[in-house]
């Protein structure tokens, strides 16, 4: 009995320590923006708005968040649209070497937007005059995310029974009508997953925008955060903490919204 109790105590202490590792940074993020003169310590905030005022005085802070939204939304829309069509075709049409193609794409995609291809990508963007253009960045980010998105989407497509589509076909629906009326509603959770995943990826991406956008006005939050220093070259905790909070809020809101709206699947209509 004592052994069991000791065992439980030990287990919960371990869990508590592990949780602390995750909880403390979040506590800091929640409290530091409201503390005057924040340090690395988690302290009871005195609820000052000075930090926010200071941040709003920064000419690029709010604009960069809007840039982040543009980049993330643009990329997510393109990724979802292209991945859906490609995955549907790949799932329904028999192509020789289809699986090999998918795996190769997946392998290459981790290189495309990765550090390894930094120089050629930069060169390519310069040649195509896509440098310092948000559209160019969106296209490159889309290219990098698409293979994995197609891969994930194909899984969703494979798991929807074909008889839904055949049924629509017999009633005379065209392939695009089938995708619109039947396939898209059925894989909506998949679309939401891919969309959220794309947004989160772009939102946190530092390297690509840093590399391809030189105009500060166009840079997203992830890059602007890198510029928040004091005159002395020290990290400006006041601004960093406040910006960090504002930077995380949209992503958290998106997760809440999506899980509320799409966090379910339709059932029935197919007798198993």
């Amino acid at each position: 009995m004592t052994r069991f109790v000791l065992h439980r105590i030990g287990f919960y202490v371990l869990v508590a320590v592990l949780l602390a590792f995750f909880a403390v940074p979040l506590l800091w993020l929640a409290s530091a923006p409201f503390t005057s003169d924040p340090t690395y310590q988690v302290r009871m905030p005195d609820f000052t708005a000075d930090n926010f005022r200071a941040l709003f005085d920064n000419p690029y802070a709010l604009g960069s968040l809007w840039n982040s939204v543009l980049l993330a939304a643009g990329t997510a829309v393109l990724v979802v649209a292209f991945a859906t069509l490609a995955a549907y075709a790949l799932s329904r049409v028999r192509l020789p070497g289809r699986d090999a193609l998918l795996y190769t794409l997946l392998l290459l995609s981790s290189i495309i937007t990765g550090t390894a291809a930094m120089v050629p990508l930069f060169q390519l963007a310069v040649e195509l005059q896509l440098i310092d253009s948000q559209l160019g960045l969106i296209l490159i980010l889309t290219g990098g995310l698409l293979p994995a998105a197609i891969f994930m989407m194909k899984d969703f497509m494979d798991s929807t029974p074909k008889s839904y589509e055949e049924s629509a076909r017999v009633f005379g629906a065209t392939p695009l009508q089938i995708v619109r009326h039947v396939v898209v509603p059925l894989v909506r959770p998949g679309l939401a997953t891919i969309g959220v995943w794309a947004v989160a990826n772009v939102w946190g991406n530092f390297l690509m925008p840093y590399l391809l956008l030189s105009d500060v006005e166009k840079q997203p939050g992830a890059v602007i955060m890198y510029t928040l220093y004091t005159e002395g070259g020290q990290a400006n905790l006041q601004l960093l903490a406040t910006f960090g909070l504002l930077y995380s809020v949209p992503v958290v809101l998106m997760y809440l919204f999506v899980s509320k709206k799409y966090g379910f699947r339709f059932h029935g209509g197919i007798k198993r």
């Binding site: 029974p161 008889s163 839904y164 055949e166 049924s167 629509a168 076909r169 017999v170 009633f171 005379g172 629906a173 065209t174 009326h181 039947v182 509603p185 059925l186 339709f266 059932h267 029935g268 209509g269 197919i270 007798k271 198993r272």
Partner: peptide, 20 residues
């Protein structure tokens, strides 16, 4: 002729009702 152009209608074994 494509299925839609044959003027037929089909009930599938699993009924294939659209769940949404």
């Amino acid at each position: 002729v494509q299925p839609g152009g044959r003027d037929i209608a089909m009930v599938f074994q699993d009924y294939a009702l659209f769940p949404h």
